[in-house]
């Protein structure tokens, strides 16, 4: 029961935040991906950095249970799947999480995104044995690995570097990049969008 309450509280907070940062708006996604307005990119980079610093910092002082980490496996299909997701993300302006939030916000096109998504997921369920047999789902570089070795974690490290410190350092880099990235870029030579 506790876990259901947490799902409701954290899920609602996540959905509301995605709306407030503009991630559920395909126009902002489109302008981030066509590199004309990187505002949302800065938000995402800062979020990853802040999350990383809080998580690894919390683990170092014993406030956060290292056992809550959940690292996904690395395999060739991760890259191919990433390419596909990226293409569909740019076309539709939605990814799975922002798509369901956008539909709930009243965006009708997001309902079509979800319908397509349900068919796409079903198509993968049907074709999974072929991918499995192809070997493209086999682990590479150790599979479920982190870049450094996190003390107490059940995952191997790609390197022997302290995973906690590396996590803090990479988190700081994400924050830094968020700050130095220009808000409004343009591929047509310094042309700046008027402020709204």
């Amino acid at each position: 029961m506790t876990s259901i309450i947490l799902a409701i509280v954290i899920g609602a907070a996540f959905g509301a935040t995605l709306d407030r940062v503009g991630a559920t708006n395909p126009s902002l996604i489109g302008r981030m991906l066509n590199l004309t307005n990187l505002h949302l990119m800065k938000t995402i980079l800062l979020a990853i950095g802040v999350g990383s610093i809080l998580m690894f910092g919390g683990q170092m002082i014993g406030l956060v249970d290292v056992g809550h980490m959940s690292v996904k496996a690395a395999y060739i299909g991760v890259f191919i799947g990433g390419l596909l997701l990226g293409g569909g993300w740019a076309m539709s302006g939605y990814c799975p999480g922002t798509g369901v939030c956008a539909a709930a916000s009243g965006r009708k096109d997001a309902l079509f995104f979800i319908a397509g998504g349900l068919f796409g997921a079903a198509a993968y369920m049907g074709t999974y044995p072929a991918w499995k047999a192809s070997g493209m789902l086999d682990d590479i570089a150790g599979g479920k690995v982190t870049l450094g070795t996190v003390p107490g974690a059940s995952y191997e490290g790609l390197t022997a570097i302290s995973g906690d410190l590396l996590g803090l350092a990479i988190g700081a880099v994400f924050v830094l990049v968020a700050f130095v990235l220009p808000d409004t870029a343009s591929r047509s030579g310094g042309q700046v969008q008027p402020a709204e």
């Binding site: 890259f79 993300w89 539709s92 798509g99 995104f113 068919f119 796409g120 997921a121």
Partner: peptide, 16 residues
């Protein structure tokens, strides 16, 4: 949006 959704979820499931 429908086609994009299909590709996004097929890719996401392939990627895990």
């Amino acid at each position: 949006a429908f086609v994009g959704g299909f590709i996004v979820l097929y890719g996401a499931r392939l990627a895990g």
